[in-house]
Simulated assay, not measured.
Amino acid sequence: MNSEGDGEADKHKAKMQKIKAARDRMNEDRQGEKGLIIVHTGPGKGKSSSGFGMILRSIAHGMPCAVVQFIKGAWDTGERRLLTEHFGGLCQFYAMGEGFTWETQDKARDIAAAQRGWEKAKELIRDPSVQMVLLDEINIALRYEYLDLAEVVAFLRDEKPFMTHVVLTGRNAKPELIEIADLVTEMAVVKHPFRAGIKAQAGVEF
Rank of each mutant, 00 (worst) to 15 (best):
K20Y: 08
T164P: 07
V189C: 07
D127F: 02
G89K: 09
E8M: 14
V166K: 02
R23S: 14
S50Q: 04
G73K: 00
I38Q: 03
V166Q: 01
R57I: 11
V204E: 11
V130T: 15
G35C: 07
K18Y: 08
Q69N: 05
A196D: 15
A150L: 13
D76S: 10
E85F: 02
Q201T: 11
A112L: 08
L168M: 15
D182M: 15
H192L: 08
S50G: 10
I71C: 03
L149V: 15
I140K: 03
A112R: 13
Y94L: 08
D29Y: 09
A112F: 09
L177W: 06
E79S: 08
K122Q: 13
M16F: 07
I180R: 04
S3C: 04
L56F: 06
T104M: 09
I140N: 02
D6H: 14
I138P: 01
G53Y: 05
E98F: 04
K45T: 03
A95V: 01
V152D: 09
I38L: 11
E79Y: 02
F93Y: 12
P161R: 09
D29M: 14
L134A: 04
V190P: 04
Q17L: 06
H61D: 08
P193C: 13
F93K: 05
E79K: 06
A141N: 00
A22E: 12
W75N: 11
K18R: 15
W75D: 13
I111L: 12
M1S: 08
A74W: 05
M16H: 07
G73V: 00
A22W: 05
I178A: 12
P193Y: 10
E98M: 09
A108E: 13
F155L: 15
G62M: 12
I138L: 11
R81S: 08
E186C: 12
D148M: 08
R171G: 04
K20D: 12
E98D: 05
A108Q: 14
E119D: 15
T41A: 08
A14W: 02
A21E: 14
L134S: 00
Q115K: 07
E159Y: 13
G89Q: 09
R143M: 15
G46W: 01
D182T: 09
H12G: 06
R109D: 07
E145F: 09
T164C: 14
V133A: 04
N139G: 07
E151P: 03
L56Q: 08
K45P: 02
D10L: 14
F87M: 06
R57S: 09
M16R: 09
H165Q: 06
A66R: 00
S48Q: 06
L149W: 11
A22D: 10
F70S: 00
E205C: 10
Q131Y: 07
G73H: 00
A150W: 05
D182E: 12
E186L: 08
K160T: 10
K15M: 10
T101N: 05
E85T: 09
G97F: 03
Q115I: 04
I125D: 00
K72I: 00
K11N: 11
M163E: 12
E85Q: 11
G51K: 01
D136N: 13
L83R: 01
K122A: 04
I111P: 04
Y94G: 04
F70W: 02
V167I: 13
V189R: 02
S48I: 01
H40Q: 10
I71R: 01
Q31K: 14
Q69Y: 00
K47Y: 02
R30V: 06
